[in-house]
């Protein structure tokens, strides 16, 4: 479970986050929805303790842990796949797994499992250069999940994927939820979030303007559909900013 409490972050002249609070529950998929530049990536980066908030804090699994502990409890897939092109898929995954302190046996065992699950057997020992977007995502996902984290953060995971790959990814994310993981993903695509998420947090101009299940959000905003709700909520955020 990830509890975000009143995060505020400023980059020079830009107020990236202002008093942002929300909860991502275990066994649920929580969608962070917002326009480009609304503060989604900043929020996720603060949760993964790559950035420090100016004020506010984050509790992971009920504990305000130090950055090292927080990072070990999270699996993070950043916006860019961030794979090393000259290394093979296996070497990429192994690098992070070793840095996470996993034993060699466990690493190979888990790579084997993910290979079967994501159908990567053919590409696992090939270098990343020349991989398709979908193939890269499979490797990056395996790398982010190799330590079997209870909390999973995905920054715009489906952007740039074709229909088949998107569908496979959604199945995987639902699978994580069904195992009891807390999944927090960001997106700027309405349909994406409504198709996948149990809970939605709408963020605009660095503020959380509304959150809850899709039904709750419709009630809150009095809109007929989620798209309208999103537009209204965003305008509301703009008027505050």
């Amino acid at each position: 479970m990830i509890v975000v409490e009143r995060l505020t972050k400023r980059f020079d002249a830009v107020q990236a986050l202002q008093d942002a609070s929300f909860v991502a529950q275990d066994g649920q998929i929580t969608g962070l929805l917002g326009a480009n530049g609304a503060g989604k990536s900043t929020t996720l980066r603060i949760i993964s303790s790559v950035l420090q908030a100016d004020s506010g804090r984050v509790a992971i699994d009920g504990e305000h842990a130090d950055p090292m502990t927080a990072r070990s409890r999270l699996g993070v897939l950043p916006h860019a796949s961030g794979l090393y092109p000259k290394l093979t898929a296996r070497e990429n995954i192994r690098y992070h797994a070793v840095l996470r302190g996993l034993s060699a046996d466990l690493i190979e065992q888990r790579i084997g499992e993910w290979c079967a699950r994501l159908e990567m057997a053919e590409i696992i020992d090939r270098r990343i250069e020349g991989f398709s977007h979908g193939q890269k995502l499979k490797v990056a996902l395996t790398r982010a999940l190799i330590h079997a984290p209870r909390n999973v953060i995905l920054d715009e995971p489906t952007s740039g994927l074709d229909i088949g790959a998107t569908r496979a990814l959604r199945d995987l994310i639902r699978g994580l939820r069904d195992q009891g993981c807390c999944v927090l993903l960001s997106s700027h695509i309405m349909q994406e979030v409504s198709a996948l998420c149990d809970d939605i947090v709408i963020i605009a101009h660095g503020r959380v303007v509304t959150s809850g299940s899709p039904q709750q959000i419709l009630q809150h905003t009095g809109a007929a559909d989620l798209e309208e709700a999103f537009m209204r909520a965003s305008r509301e955020g703009a008027s505050h900013a």
Binding site: S49, V50, R71, L74, A80, G82, L83, Y84, H96, L99
Partner: peptide, 12 residues
Amino acid sequence: RGSLESLLALPV
């Protein structure tokens, strides 16, 4: 390449 962010998100 964008690989720095995931590296810095590791507990090291």
